Amino acid sequence: MQNSHSGVNQLGGVFVNGRPLPDSTRQKIVELAHSGARPCDISRILQVSNGCVSKILGRYYETGSIRPRAIGGSKPRVATPEVVSKIAQYKRECPSIFAWEIRDRLLSEGVCTNDNIPSVSSINRVLRNLASEKQQMGADGMYDKLRMLNGQTGSWGTRPGWYPGTSVPGQPTQDGCQQQEGGGENTNSISSNGEDSDEAQMRLQLKRKLQRNRTSFTQEQIEALEKEFERTHYPDVFARERLAAKIDLPEARIQVWFSNRRAKWRREEKLRNQRRQASNTPSHIPISSSFSTSVYQPIPQPTTPVSSFTSGSMLGRTDTALTNTYSALPPMPSFTMANNLPMQPPVPSQTSSYSCMLPTSPSVNGRSYDTYTPPHMQTHMNSQPMGTSGTTSTGLISPGVSVPVQVPGSEPDMSQYWPRLQ
């Protein structure tokens, strides 16, 4: 039975679970980093996980050691009161100082060594604690504590007292930064006198190289990059290397530039699409467009005044059976039934097929058609009795279509119309 579990990581490298990497692998990681390889490249070359490479390099940059820390136990506290007071002093002298600059000053002034120097995250935590204590304490208590930490007896009751030896409130920041720059020169002199001055200088240079600022491109470089971006948004590694040799930039910087440029292009394309949609959409909808001609068919113009009344309900007709019959029939052209047409008796099958359309009241044959006459024609229609054979009435077949029909004066039988409509 094995005491430890061995495995293979996602890159194909072998590791022992819970145990640190061998010293030979750690040394190779540092050597590759000094030669300029990126952590992701080191991870692929040595088949070590990216997190492990970053952790080893980060500890090497901070402490200069590649040895693993002790497994188990607690780390001794490195942010001692003396170190905290120095950090507060540096922050007062130059409020814009960075944590890694404070760390360098602690090393250069001999406050800490490589073994007990606090990390950048520890210094940031100390600065946050100082800021929170400043908010919790009152103004007087804060000034007393700062005077105690600074070891001075001057008056701290006013704002300019934060910067000793100065009279203009805006000047101390520059003086403090100048003092810090002077301390940086002392850093070089002190570290050069040490035993491991060369190694420390190499480590600091490598650290500065990794902690780079934003790349500033010249106009020629920007023009070359934009020209390549117009050709393709995704250049391959050969195109990037050719462009890197042409404009004297690292291939990694060119790759990052193209990634950022593609993101910018997507944002601009989104804005262009929004403007295009806004320009195509009308600002207001016309009133006429809300009524579609496919839904509402136009009603033909009436030929006679009587045809303006298109349904039985508008003429005072309360018989719903006839109203439904007229509205359900398709529109037909106007025609006239003459008196000489043969009077065919209704076929029983045809009569039964339209039995649902006729009223059940037996008085329908005896009703006159003056009910369908509009009010303004009552006088004219009353002067001509319906009993004469020459009287013409208008029957409504569908809305908007008038059918003048000659009705025999002897017997106005409704059943004569249905064979004609089939």
Rank of each mutant, 00 (worst) to 15 (best):
F98P: 15
L149R: 06
C40V: 14
C52D: 01
F15L: 02
V16I: 07
R38D: 01
N124M: 00
V8Q: 07
V53L: 00
E93M: 12
I102D: 01
G36I: 04
K145H: 06
Y60D: 04
R69G: 13
N9C: 00
A99M: 05
L127W: 04
C40S: 14
Q47W: 05
V8I: 10
G18K: 00
L32G: 03
Q47L: 10
Q136C: 12
K28G: 07
L149P: 07
N3I: 12
W100P: 03
G141P: 07
G110Q: 08
N150Y: 09
Q27P: 02
V14E: 09
A79K: 04
V111S: 12
I45R: 10
I42G: 02
Q135I: 11
S74H: 00
T80I: 09
S85K: 09
V83K: 09
Y90K: 08
E109L: 13
Q135K: 10
I45N: 11
F98C: 13
N124F: 04
S4T: 10
N50Y: 07
V16A: 12
V78C: 05
L149M: 10
Q10C: 11
R67M: 09
I102V: 02
A139R: 09
N129V: 04
S4V: 11
S24Y: 14
A79V: 06
R128V: 02
P20C: 02
G18M: 00
R128K: 09
R38F: 03
I29M: 06
L106W: 01
P39N: 00
R77H: 07
V14L: 11
G13A: 02
G73C: 00
F98K: 15
V8P: 04
G36M: 04
Y90R: 07
S24M: 13
S74G: 00
E133W: 13
S35C: 08
N9I: 01
G72L: 00
P20H: 01
L127Y: 13
D140R: 11
P39Q: 00
V120E: 03
G58R: 00
G36A: 07
K91S: 05
E101T: 13
N9W: 01
S85V: 12
D41S: 15
I42V: 11
A33G: 10
K145A: 06
K75G: 04
I117E: 09
V8T: 14
D140F: 11
C94P: 07
G51C: 04
R44D: 04
G7M: 11
I117T: 06
G18Y: 02
E31D: 09
K86P: 04
N124Y: 14
L21V: 06
R103F: 04
R26V: 01
A79H: 03
H34N: 11
S121M: 04
N150A: 13
G141Y: 11
S6D: 13
S24P: 15
G36W: 04
I97T: 09
T63W: 03
V8C: 06
G13E: 02
C94Q: 14
R125F: 00
S96P: 15
V78A: 05
V78L: 03
Y60K: 03
A33P: 00
N116Q: 12
E82P: 07
Q2T: 09
S24C: 11
S24T: 14
G73D: 01
G64S: 04
C52N: 02
R147G: 10
R125Q: 03
Q89K: 14
K145L: 07
V126A: 11
G110M: 12
N50L: 15
K91P: 03
Q2R: 09
H5A: 10
E133T: 14
V84D: 01
L146T: 07
K145S: 08
D115S: 08
D23C: 15
S132A: 13
S85G: 14
G7E: 15
S65A: 07
Y90E: 15
S74T: 06
R19Q: 06
P95I: 12
S49R: 00
